[in-house]
Design a protein around this nucleic acid. Structure first.
Lengths: 124, 124
DNA sequence: TCCTTGTCTAGATGACTTTCGAAGCAAGGC
DNA sequence: GCCTTGCTTCGAAAGTCATCTAGACAAGGA
């Protein structure tokens, strides 16, 4: 459980809402959660997220080289993921390393939990 | 281009990809999945989705009245959700009813499965 | 038949996104 | 100190999106 020094608590990373199929989200909850889905709604960012989530951590240089896009463009997409609270970055010497924020990621999955919903029963 | 009766199987609704944390998504997979996340990336659509998923089915009139937006705007958002393969609609008499496509919804949740990933172990 | 109500489509517009090249800043080697 | 490499920020061009009004279409009732 050793999490190294993550000073800022991102509110979007803590428990926010019940699964969206359990009961209607109110406007405030939707405003908190939608930006996370939005961040994953671009193919480049989804691949970046997938690459970051597949390993303990990864260097920007390895991310950039996997795409046919300029450095600034990749940097922009990483910033969007960071601001959505989905990943964290840390400079160590020459390189910057990215890693997934597991709690936010888990939270997002929980929102899409489909079990025990009226709709699930009706369609099943 | 009749919108009634869409007998076409939506490819995005069938099993597509392993969880995004299991291994990096390739460009093709990302292109298939990203539009679904994008559809949920707007607060209005996320609430619409949540309202639809919370009940077996729901009438457009009940959806429209829950927002401070014009009918055409709600209709536009519902179209985006439909084209993302997340919901289905059916006209019955005067009203149009919407219901969640459970398989697509389940698929989306499975993509965010965080268990058994290198990142999950490293951060835990 | 015509009217009303419910929903969708068309077209316009202002705001936001994606992308780039140029420039900046931080670390490390000469 | 200066140069190189890695990454980010800035500013701009081009494309996409959310929203509206106006209008069309479908169903049902007078």
């Amino acid at each position: 459980m050793s999490k190294q020094a993550l000073p800022v608590v991102d509110l979007r990373a803590v428990a926010c809402c019940p699964p969206i199929a359990a009961r209607p989200l109110d406007a405030g909850q939707a405003a908190v959660v939608a930006p996370m889905f939005k961040a994953l709604g671009d193919p480049v960012r989804l691949r970046l997220m997938s690459m970051i989530a597949s390993v303990p951590e990864i260097c920007v240089c390895d991310l950039t080289s996997a795409f046919d896009l300029s450095g600034p463009t990749i940097s922009h997409h990483l910033k969007v993921l960071r601001e959505a609270g989905l990943v964290d970055s840390e400079r160590r010497g020459t390189w910057v390393w990215y890693r997934v924020k597991a709690e936010a990621f888990r939270q997002l999955g929980a929102l899409l939990d489909v079990s025990a919903t009226p709709a699930a029963e009706a369609v099943a």
